[in-house]
Nucleic acid binder design. Structure first.
Lengths: 338, 338
DNA sequence: GAATGTCTTGACAGCGCTGACTTGTCTGAT
DNA sequence: ATCAGACAAGTCAGCGCTGTCAAGACATTC
């Protein structure tokens, strides 16, 4: 029926333990033996049983991707990251379990235990805002589970990937300044996300660089959702001197701004320039297409996973890897009116 | 360290096998014993090891969600379904593995074997267009793996969920007819998706019901993507008598139509009414908001999974369950000009 | 040449659970 | 009183692999 490790051992004329050593890439096997075992494995189409390995050993070859699902609906951002994680898993013979967590409540403890204790999870990939959940991180350390973070807020001593969001945001705002805009509004994201902070800092630093004052009135809080973008835009439109450009901390909110602009009879980009962040598929599907920053989400998921797997193999290569961004200048931004 | 089944047995004063029986809800245990065992499990916080159960038994309490990832990027549709699958898993103490497959090539055989043979997967949830992959289905039957389908093209004897897409599409087109439109264009989806066929049939039947001729010129193939929507719209705009309304087979293409309309100087809905299908988050984020059909994707994922789990428990309740749709009449459709 | 260390390999138990089989008990029919 | 049958619970091996320990084959040292 099933080809077992023992069968490979018998076929090669070695002990099962030796085959096991080859399987786990342990060093103390002679090259000749290793070759013969590998050849037998291949020709017999041997596939080790994850269940047995998990039971007997301490590894499960399973990792989990944790994400916060308190914000419905599903975002393409997370879906892209998941694809990246799966990419990395596939090339490394790991498997992935997706695990939505509700940040609030102690739900996550139960879920985490189910994952770590029950499934012997080897490591987890954390996505924002889970990257900075204090209790979550504490619990992970307690269980001694390796983890890699994607865009964590606190990056000190953390394994994972990030992007220089501050610089990207600053470049974007500098672009607006270059187009002649002087009153530039900003809609921030959820405070617990690192992204919100960095993008705001980038915005402020670009203004400072250009010698413009940072007026708190022009900074309105949002929640990364379309609806919050609409509301924030209305607030900005109501100012005595409404901004001629708005930088929303993500594309969804930027879409909300464009929506509100349309509703208010403002033409984009003639009366108002709008830009976002993330370059979600939607950015090119709006009219006019949205100026934004491209974030390589899938690649980030892949790299974070590779970092995690590297750590599991004992290569302590781990700091935060920085991935490059690219500005996408499109039709939603234009020269300031007047 | 870890609480094992044996520990529970000792604490209760019964044999391990009896605890196992309680765990697996086997009938031949007296009510009194069952209660005592359950109480002990709870107080000791016993958590069975999936690895051990998988090794010893024939079940893994693991299901897989299969999806086609040859069309990048990630769609919210699939992400929503995944959330629904996870909802159902959680309440039934199952776990899920996400498994992207490339439909073409024989990649899927390897992936499927990895899942079924290695992980002892109990069942799979199929999403379009995998629901109708002949080789895939054959392989699943070969491995005797239970499966539930979401919106399969061929529904005969299949377990899963669907929606009356034909009727929904017909209602939507009837709505356009009611607004006075006589030249209504249609952009179809990928032929291998059942959705494409049903929505087109709905379109045609609605025209027939209204006594309008179905002119092949007004039916243009698309690929469910924004770009294909743009291209198809251009083709329709170039007709000697351009349509006054366009029904795109999904929201992404409808967004493409709106984009193309903007580019061509046509105002939506004044010069052109547009409607889509699926009610993705984007539908309310466009300007004007898109008239479409709401498809309860998450709920469909949940129900399909429940069907699958039901089948695994031997309840052969299985036909296709139909979920209700709702028309979302929004600003992108209006009375025909003239 | 004996003692020591290094490298490669094997023997064996056991991870935590369940399947197949057996045992014991109680019921009702003969 | 005797036996078949139903039910509750137990015994035990073993799922496929790895950890621990031990042993054999060599090379190295003084």
């Amino acid at each position: 029926m099933r080809v077992r490790l023992e069968d490979v051992a018998r076929a090669t004329g070695v002990s099962p333990k030796t085959v096991s050593r080859v399987l786990n890439e342990e060093p103390s096997v002679s090259a000749a033996t290793r070759q013969r075992v590998l050849a037998a494995m291949k020709s017999m189409n041997y596939r080790p049983s994850p269940a047995a390995r998990g039971l007997a050993g301490n590894r499960s070859l399973l990792i989990a991707m944790l994400y916060d699902n308190s914000n419905n609906p599903a975002s393409t951002y997370l879906a892209e990251i998941q694809n990246g994680v799966l990419d990395a898993c596939e090339t490394n013979r790991y498997s992935m379990m997706a695990c939505p967590l509700r940040m609030l409540g102690k739900d996550f403890i139960r879920r985490l235990d189910a994952l770590v204790v029950d499934h012997h999870i080897d490591g987890v990939v954390l996505t924002p805002p889970l990257t900075d959940g204090r209790k979550l991180l504490a619990r992970l350390r307690e269980h001694k589970v390796a983890h890699a973070s994607i865009c964590p807020l606190h990056s000190k001593g953390v394994l994972g990937v990030c992007m220089d969001e501050t610089r990207a945001a600053a470049e974007l705002v500098a672009h607006l300044v270059g187009l002649g805009h002087r009153r530039i509004g900003h809609i921030t994201g959820i405070a617990s996300h690192g992204a919100s902070r960095w993008r705001r800092i980038g915005y402020e630093s670009a203004l400072a660089t250009a010698g413009l004052v940072v007026d708190p009135q022009y900074i309105v809080p949002g929640e990364f959702t379309f609806g919050s973008g609409v509301a924030a835009a209305r607030q900005l439109f109501a100012l005595p001197q409404r901004p001629s450009a708005i930088f929303a901390a993500n594309d969804d909110m930027a879409a909300g701004v464009m929506w509100a602009a349309n509703a208010a009879g403002l033409a984009v980009p003639r009366d108002l320039s709008v830009c976002g962040f993330d370059d979600t598929p939607m950015a090119t599907q709006l009219w006019p297409p949205l100026t934004t920053v491209h974030q390589p989400s899938r690649e980030m998921g892949r790299i974070a996973t590779l970092q995690l797997l590297g750590q599991l193999r004992g290569l302590d290569q781990g700091q935060l890897v920085q991935v490059p961004y690219t500005l996408q200048l499109r039709g939603s931004t234009a020269a300031a009116p007047g």
